[in-house]
Computed example of a mutant assay.
Amino acid sequence: MFANYLIGLREGLEASLVVCILIAYLVKTDRRDRLPPVWTGVGAAVALSLAFGALLQFGSSTLTFEAQETLGGTLSVLSVALVTWMVFWMRRTARHLKSELHGKLDAALAMGTGALVVTAFLAVGREGLETSLFIWTAVQATGDGWNPLVGATLGLLTSVVLGWLFYRGALKINLAKFFTWTGGMLVVVAAGVLAYGVHDLQEAGHLPGLRTLAFDISTTIPKTSWYGTVLKGVFNFQPDPTTLQVIVWAAYVVPVLIFFFRKPTNPAALAAGSVPDTTAA
């Protein structure tokens, strides 16, 4: 549940910050009459994300076993690629996020109501679709029924509350450090999802080595034990992974974490690590 809570919190907070910036800008520039189109776009983005998640869940249940494994493995790899891009993008462009959104909003205001709806929809929709895809693949990886969904929902609700507190100026937090450390933790979670996706593709017959295990410590860490369940839920740990799973996991997590936590070497990169006050106009 914790891993999915982290996903919901991390991804949801990005969307919440985007909404805060859009709303704060309209309020501070005395354009409250343009708020309804923005909320319409946000609502449409949320609805699309929920529909996408439902499509993934119910659509995959009608497929054959091989097709399910192929779909699960392919979407796992895709979600890991999107999340990896997202954590690096957020760390690099956080400082300019506010001005970028303000520029898009000014252009949308000049074009009319429809453009406002589209701007809000696109700003939030990308985060929502990424979140739906990653949560779905994480849920498939853990295979733990409703607990992952409960964790993700609690994370999303927490992000909404934090976003509201940021908007009201009632909460101050170093968002640069928050996104850095949660991003690093998310990379570890993504590595587990990637390994799970590789196993799916092996079961579907697209990758070799399904019967070649790197190690098997199932007797030491049983899958049904409480600590085995915790390791599975948080890190997608598998006590009997294939050799290819271990190779892919290490080949992803080691270089990605090194690049992610590497300190910037020039002033421009250092400046990109800060996050602006989202409540300012």
Rank of each mutant, 00 (worst) to 15 (best):
D33E: 14
P255W: 04
F235Y: 15
T142A: 14
A170I: 03
T64K: 14
T220I: 06
F259D: 04
L116I: 05
S60W: 01
V193K: 10
W164V: 15
T265Y: 00
R34I: 00
F215K: 12
V124C: 07
S16R: 10
K28M: 01
L154V: 09
L109Q: 12
M1E: 12
M185H: 02
W181R: 13
F88R: 13
V118Q: 12
A195S: 13
I7Y: 10
V83P: 02
L48F: 12
A45E: 04
L55H: 13
L257C: 05
G228L: 02
V38F: 04
G103D: 08
S274W: 07
G12M: 02
A123E: 03
D277A: 06
A250P: 00
A15K: 08
A107L: 07
F166W: 05
P222W: 07
W85D: 00
N4W: 06
G143Y: 10
Y196T: 02
F166N: 07
T279Y: 05
V46A: 11
L165Q: 13
A45T: 04
G184D: 07
A108D: 01
A123G: 06
E11D: 14
I23K: 11
W39Y: 14
M1H: 15
V77H: 08
I23T: 08
D30P: 06
A272L: 03
L78Q: 00
V254F: 04
E11A: 13
F134Y: 10
R31T: 00
G197D: 06
L55D: 09
F134W: 10
L26E: 02
E11I: 04
I21E: 02
